[in-house]
Each structure stands twice: as structure tokens, then as C-alpha cells.
């Protein structure tokens, strides 16, 4: 079954005004259930816009977006997806536990259900002893794990992530990538993931969608054949580097032969 279906979608900001921007032009994308898809491209290629169209935080100018067979608007009302941003965006005035409970509160769950689910999510992100801390007492990586726990608290079938690890240092970032794969494998969640980093996109994804700007469009889709089980060794495999090369080729519009391997992975 298709988790996300984007059909011939265009998005124009400030239509008819001097500052008109063609953010997306005729984009089509299908994401299967349980699939991990990354959107990658330079600034202004519309990858965040595409994510926001799926999340129904923006309306397309033309075309159609469906999530789990519903319109994007209905999917948002039903909270069929969870969302995580570059900034963890936890609420300073709530404890970690209360932050995770926020989407459940808004769904009208009672206190006991919320508390049980918060415990479960804290276990999932392996921070069970931090429930009663406040977010500002946690490191950046821990905060981001709590943000993921919050996004997944209502067990949505789809997770939308906008450069969630962009503000983290390299070591924390690689650790978090492993954590995210473990969590997704445990929950069977479908993920649409926006990133600037080629190795991150390749390491995480089943498919990497390469986008280019002015107007924003999909130029290439790279299938990553690294299998389901991924660990630190994955980063040294030939298939990993081949996929990186393929993505970079798509980004630069350049032939693979001109690209040296391993000298500029970031």
C-alpha cells in the first residue's frame, strides 16, 4: 500500500507578485508503507516545501497529495503522521514526559493512557530515567531523541523529518542515525526525511530523491541496495560508496567518472 502519494504537484509562492517563487514544479513521488525515503538537494530546491505539503502545513497550488489513501488535510486532522524539525522544539516549561504526552493530550487521551505511552516511548528512545527532567537539562542529541519520541507517541504510521540531525555534531549525528533506524525497524514506521547530507541520506534510506532548484523538481531517484540490516560496517561497504556517488552525480549533474570516491563525502 502507498503511504504517501504526490501527484503532479506544483507550489508557487506569492503568485502574480514581483517576488513570485516557483518552489515546486510538477513533482510526483510515491512512498510505500515501511519505506524510508530521503529528500536531498541544495537550498531552495523545495525539499522542505514538499515535506510541508505532505504534512498539509502548506496547500499545493496544483496537483494532489494523499497520505494513507486520505487527503493530506484529513490525514493531518487524524494525526496520521508525526513531525520532527531541525530544532528539537521541546517546550521548556514541560518536563520531558509532558512533552512526549503533548500530542496525546491534544487527542484527548486520559492521564493513565498518556503516562503508559510516555513510559513506552522513553524506553524506545532509551532515556527512561529522564522523564522528569526539563528539556534544557538535556544534551542536544537527547533533546532530539525526545522530539522523535514525541513525534511517534501517537503511533502514527508516518514520520516526517526536516533535517532533524542538522544541528548535531558528527559523532552524535551518526549515533542518532543508528537510533532512528532501530526505532523505525521496531515500529514499522514509514519515513520521509529531508537532509543536506549525502552519506546520511544513503545510510538511512531505501530510496534517495535528488532535487534541484529554480524551479524545485525531482531530477533523480537513487535506489539504495544496502539491505535491511545496517550498522557501522555499512558505511565501509562498496555499495554504500556507489550509492553516494550516484546521489552526488545526480546533485552535480556530472558523470560519475569525474567524482573521486571518499574525498568529499560531506
Amino acid at each position: 500500500m502507498t503511504a504517501v502519494s504526490v501527484r503532479n504537484v506544483s507550489k508557487v509562492f506569492n503568485q502574480g507578485k514581483p517576488n513570485q517563487v516557483d518552489a515546486l514544479s510538477n513533482v510526483a513521488l510515491d512512498v510505500k508503507q515501511g519505506e524510508f525515503v530521503s529528500l536531498i538537494g541544495p537550498s531552495g530546491c523545495g525539499k522542505s516545501t514538499l515535506l510541508r505539503l505532505v504534512a498539509n502545513l502548506l496547500e499545493p497550488t496544483s496537483g494532489e497529495v494523499t497520505v494513507n489513501g486520505k487527503t493530506a488535510a484529513q490525514a493531518r486532522l487524524d494525526q496520521d503522521y508525526g513531525m520532527a524539525f531541525q530544532q528539537a522544539g521541546l517546550f521548556d516549561w514541560r518536563t520531558v514526559r509532558k512533552n512526549i504526552e503533548l500530542p496525546l493530550e491534544l487527542k484527548g487521551w486520559d492521564k493513565q493512557q498518556r503516562s503508559a505511552r510516555a513510559d513506552e516511548m522513553l524506553q524506545l528512545v532509551q532515556l527512561p530515567e529522564f522523564g522528569d527532567h526539563y528539556p534544557w537539562q538535556l544534551s542536544g542529541g537527547m533533546q532530539q531523541r525526545i522530539a522523535i519520541a514525541r513525534a511517534l507517541a501517537a503511533h502514527p504510521p508516518l514520520l516526517l523529518m526536516d533535517e532533524p540531525f542538522g544541528a548535531l555534531d558528527e559523532m552524535t549525528r551518526e549515533y542518532m542515525q543508528g537510533e532512528l533506524l532501530r526505532i523505525c525497524a521496531a515500529t514499522g514506521t514509514t519515513v520521509v526525511f529531508v537532509t543536506h547530507s549525502i552519506p546520511e541520506a544513503v545510510y538511512l534510506s531505501n530510496r534517495v530523491v535528488v532535487m534541484s532548484p529554480r524551479p524545485g523538481r525531482i531530477t533523480k531517484v537513487v535506489d539504495v541496495s544496502l539491505g535491511g540490516e545496517r550498522n557501522e560496517d555499512t558505511r565501509n561497504r562498496t555499495a554504500f560508496f556507489e550509492a553516494i556517488t550516484a546521489v552526488r552525480e545526480g546533485l552535480r549533474g556530472m558523470h560519475a567518472a569525474h567524482v573521486g570516491l571518499g574525498n568529499d563525502d560531506r
Binding site: R52, A55, L57, R76, L77, D78, Q79, Y81, G82, M83, F85, Q86, Q87, G89, F91, L102, P103, L106, L160
Partner: peptide, 14 residues
């Protein structure tokens, strides 16, 4: 309120 937090609340259809 930060824009991301407002978007978060929107994503919950709050």
C-alpha cells in the same frame, strides 16, 4: 512563539 512550534501545533491539528 517560534515558527517551528506553531507548525508543530498545526501538525497536531490543534
Amino acid at each position: 512563539a517560534p515558527a517551528a512550534s506553531v507548525e508543530l501545533m498545526q501538525s497536531y491539528a490543534a
